[in-house]
Design a protein around this nucleic acid. Structure first.
Lengths: 143, 143
DNA sequence: TTATATAGTTGTATAGTACAATTATTAAAC
DNA sequence: GTTTAATAATTGTACTATACAACTATATAA
């Protein structure tokens, strides 16, 4: 494999994470943080589930997800309902308000990314999306 | 611009940050954290500089860089030398030990990324590196 | 029916960041 | 030249995002 490409990816990945971390910690960019966003999105797209399933899905510790879910509940974006089949377990269910906030937040993200990608060719946008997805899948597989 | 590509990039970017954040918080992955690594790399490649210049370069708050630099100094990776031209300012200079640690850490990162990219074509690797660099440059320009 | 596994929560710790206040020093105004 | 304003760096505080360890309550297996 080309050593030079690897070095570029290695460096630019580090830079990317730092830049994005900095941007998403900016409160002007919406009421949701990145993690809450992904959690809410998952509950919206895949339906209700519990802390364990979410933690597995995201490869996070259950304690992390538990706190994030509690935060979402506290803000009224999700409802916590006991699992009738298992006295230990709960389902988190996105509320109408949660959906509304999710949609708005996502649009804000899309707007910012659209600005960033101003001037990029359609081909590059498509390829970038594909490669990011592929890379993320590689991480899941190999971690 | 293609709406679909945008949505993919938007989503996969969020996922990527979460996954990488998780990986780099794993202590097995070396003695440096990502931020310290970038700081040290900058001091190695671009030469000594002060907190202000580093903060500008990285678009971080000076307080953040100040603490990171203090951490590097404490570990003996850099030396803090007063600027002879300005009594307020200092230069942080990478030490031989710092260079050694930097090189080792970088190799660890490269090894992990090489594993992740196992099975990728040379073309995709090259393209991914190029697009990441381009995206990072877009962030600097537009932020 | 006792032992073990599981779902979830909470306490504690760390990295990484920002903002505000402070100190020391330099540069600018007058 | 003295006062005022700007700048380099540090420190206090706070917040997000994460992990690990200890714990509670419930369920499953021996």
């Amino acid at each position: 494999m080309n050593e030079n490409s690897l070095e570029t990816i290695e460096l630019e990945m580090a830079v990317l994470i730092r830049r994005i971390t900095s941007i998403t910690s900016d409160k002007r960019n919406g009421i949701l943080d990145r993690s809450a966003y992904l959690l809410l999105l998952q509950l919206h797209v895949q339906g209700s589930s519990g802390v364990k399933a979410l933690a597995d899905e995201f490869q996070l510790d259950t304690s992390t997800v538990s706190r994030q879910a509690a935060g979402l509940e506290q803000k009224g974006y999700v409802e916590k309902v006991p699992d009738p089949m298992d006295g230990r377990a709960y389902f988190y269910q996105i509320t109408d308000f949660g959906i509304k906030v999710l949609v708005e937040y996502k649009q804000g993200r899309l707007d910012r990314i659209t600005k960033l990608l101003n001037g990029w060719s359609d081909e590059d946008c498509e390829k970038f999306g594909d490669l990011l997805r592929k890379f993320n899948q590689s991480i899941v597989g190999k971690k």
